[in-house]
């Protein structure tokens, strides 16, 4: 997993709340046998609408998604996180996340930044007034910011300390376990020889 310290990228305003994981990626797209390529199913139902935000040129390269409350509720499918990442998103900003989605995001390295409702409202307005504008998300300082001068938006976001640490260090579950490699090796060397092997 890559380390995440700060990220600046095009923001996409997704003016919807209660975006469940079936909307993020419908079940028919889950048949793949890889962890990549799920971008084709991202928001599949909405993508057929030419006016949908990600179909507009200014937002095509977006890496920061700004969504309404209760993003990622519903089924536990990890594919929802993979689909967002495969598309290119590094950060999702929302006033509230589905619990399992937030957990899955932290594990996979997608930053789920929880902000106040009014921050989302301000970001939506700013991004719609300035299509293609960038948002900066600083995990070290736990801040989101966008714009210049009097229009500047700057506020804090919340994320639990453990997930923040993992993202800052770029550690997935496996990397954390492998940091205890000597414990595993010690256990292995003491295993009884009568235990079966498959090879």
């Amino acid at each position: 997993m890559e380390r995440f310290t700060t990220h600046t990228g095009v923001g996409a305003p997704l003016r919807r709340s209660n975006v469940d994981t079936d909307q993020i990626i419908p079940a028919v797209y889950l048949k793949r046998v890889t962890r990549t390529g799920f971008e084709d199913g991202l928001f599949a139902a909405w993508r057929s609408d030419p006016d949908f935000v990600l179909n507009q040129d200014a937002y095509r390269q977006a890496t920061v998604l700004v969504a309404g409350p209760d993003f990622g509720t519903g089924s536990s499918r990890e594919h929802a996180v993979w689909a967002l990442q495969n598309y290119g998103f590094k950060v999702v900003i929302s006033p509230r996340f589905g619990d399992i989605f937030r957990g899955n995001s932290g594990k996979a390295g997608l930053l789920a930044a929880q902000v106040d409702d009014k921050v989302v409202a301000a970001l939506w307005e700013y991004l719609e007034a300035n299509p293609g504008a960038a948002i900066t998300v600083d995990l070290q300082e736990r801040t989101v910011s966008a714009g210049e001068g009097p229009d500047r938006i700057e506020d804090s976001f919340t994320i639990d300390d453990y997930t923040r640490w993992r993202l800052l260090e770029g550690l997935d579950d496996i990397a954390i376990t492998l940091s205890h490699e000597e414990d595993i090796a010690a256990y292995e060397s003491a295993r009884p020889s009568f235990k079966p092997a498959t090879l």
Partner: peptide, 17 residues
Amino acid sequence: DGLRLSGRTVRRPDLTL
């Protein structure tokens, strides 16, 4: 595929079937 993406191997193929 996750192993492949992160350049990891199977630690104990001899305990895997």
